[in-house]
């Protein structure tokens, strides 16, 4: 199971790197378009298509499992907080398969859509430029499937009696203190 976790963690790290890159590239691309348009009268073609169909879908969907790994998906613990620890443990354990199934269904649906867009190699036309957009569709099935797998991993860990210890997002507080 540690091997399984190592593999999935590595995968989430890759998605994190891609999402981070998307942010940087999106900042740069949009700003460059603004500068070229406003100060040189030469807007770039297709900025909106790139932002929406490339950066945004990757940024929004790929890191879903990464977010799960650091327990950062928003859930509500107000009710269950008061439960005895044992009850809580088993309750949480059995919500995992439900959650994993839901995300797997989204993964399946978006996969079939991505394959149909791939089959026709769908693209957009901006001015006189054809921009392929089919592969952005794959960000969804990959993101949701990986998320589903990660939740399943937590379920398996629960069944094995070795629940994963929660990881903290890379330390932001430490940095703030260091800055003082």
């Amino acid at each position: 199971m540690t091997l399984l976790k190592r593999i999935l963690d590595a995968a989430t790290n890759v998605t994190a790197v891609i999402a981070g890159l998307c942010i940087v590239v999106m900042m740069g691309h949009v700003t460059l378009d603004v500068v070229l348009r406003s100060f040189f009268g030469r807007p770039m073609t297709g900025t909106i298509v790139f932002v929406a169909n490339y950066y945004m879908v990757f940024l929004v969907c790929l890191p879903l499992a990464f977010v799960e790994r650091f327990d950062s998906h928003i859930s509500v613990e107000v009710l269950t907080e008061r439960f005895p620890a044992r009850v809580k443990h088993h309750l949480y354990g059995w919500t995992y398969p439900v959650t994993a199934l839901i995300f797997a269904v989204i993964g399946y649906a978006t996969w079939t859509e991505a394959m149909s867009k791939f089959a026709i190699r769908t693209f957009m036309i901006e001015k006189d430029m054809a921009i392929s957009i089919w592969f952005g569709y794959f960000a969804l099935p990959f993101g949701y499937a990986l998320l589903s797998l990660y939740v399943l991993l937590k379920f398996v860990a629960y069944l094995a009696g070795q629940p994963l210890t929660p990881e903290r997002l890379p330390g932001s507080e430490d940095l703030a203190v260091a800055h003082e």
């Binding site: 942010i23 999106m26 900042m27 949009v30 909106i48 932002v51 929406a52 169909n53 950066y55 945004m56 879908v57 940024l59 929004v60 969907c61 269904v105 989204i106 649906a109 978006t110 079939t112 859509e113 952005g136 569709y137 960000a139 969804l140 932001s172 940095l175 703030a176 800055h179």
Partner: peptide
Amino acid sequence: LKVIPYNFAASWQLSSVPMFLMMGFLAYHT
């Protein structure tokens, strides 16, 4: 599930959400 999540995520106008977040987080961490 095929059409709605993709079309929601693939949004030019919503791209300002991560961008304004980035600006705020950067301002904080620096």
